[in-house]
Simulated assay, not measured.
Amino acid sequence: MKLAVGMLMLLLSFMLMPFNIQVERIPSTVMNKSFNATVITPKTYGKTSKKYSVVYVLHGWLNDYDSMSYHTEIGRLSDEYDFIIVMPDGNLNKWYFDSRINSEFRFGTYVGREVPEYIDKKYRTIKKRSARAVTGYSMGGFGAFNAVFNYPETFGNVGSMSGAVEISGFENKWNLRKVFGNYEENKDLWESAAVKNNLNKFGNKKFNIVISCGDEDFFIDINRELHEKMLEAGIKHTYIERPGRHDWDYWREEIKFQLLFFSNYLK
């Protein structure tokens, strides 16, 4: 009897085992370095042979690959929606961009191509753009759109939370000059980096797009403008504006909405 109860308890504990979090060291050929990434697999991953959709979540300025693990319930959300979630490192402040000012900064290529290639080789993933999403908060929102514009074959779904969707006007902030150079000398690059100026790169491919920003966020005006530009261009998207600032109180809730949104498309 005791043995049977023990076996039952063991079985129940196995069935209730939550998501798994681990840190991967993912190499970059273009930068000749490796960087950490948090990878969350849902509780079903070790119990089936199925292949999984993947959501890539990019962190904000001066955060890192495990910031969202500390501040949100993203692991539980991996279980809820049965996604693999990958949070690569953006080296604190490199803006997920291939800098023409400093050739050592190639984080656009890293998150757009190299990280997904690594994940697809090591994990049981659905290797289709329709089964991959990329989103991020603040700097990561900029990075998510940059990844989609430059690697439309990789991602079919994109989101942004409180995204820095336009960098002009913030010339002296957030290490931008180290990536984009002096504004006066590189005005064309600064202006061309704005998401609103790259909408033509969506082309004829199908994308599922969600943009959100708090109404007290200092990025609210540029997000509203992006929303209007997308409406004018006839680009189908979901725009969410609700009470909130540029902080974890907002992102903690917003990541829930973003993953719910993606769950409608990642099959």
Rank of each mutant, 00 (worst) to 15 (best):
G141K: 11
F142L: 05
F142H: 10
G143R: 14
A144S: 13
F145C: 09
Y151P: 05
E153S: 09
E153K: 09
F155W: 01
F155M: 02
N157V: 10
N157S: 12
V158A: 12
G159A: 13
G163E: 04
A164H: 00
S168A: 09
E171A: 01
N172E: 08
N172V: 03
N175F: 08
L176Y: 05
K178D: 14
V179G: 14
K187M: 13
D188V: 10
L189Q: 11
W190H: 13
W190M: 10
W190C: 07
E191I: 11
E191W: 01
A193E: 03
A194C: 11
A194I: 12
K196M: 14
N198M: 11
F202N: 09
F202K: 09
K205W: 04
K206D: 08
K206T: 13
I209Y: 01
V210K: 00
I211C: 05
E216D: 13
D217K: 06
F218Q: 03
F219K: 02
I220C: 02
I220D: 08
D221G: 01
D221M: 03
R224L: 14
H227I: 00
H227E: 08
E228G: 12
E228T: 14
K229I: 01
A233D: 03
G234M: 13
I235S: 06
T238P: 00
T238C: 02
T238G: 01
P243L: 07
G244V: 07
D247L: 15
D247G: 14
E253H: 08
E253R: 15
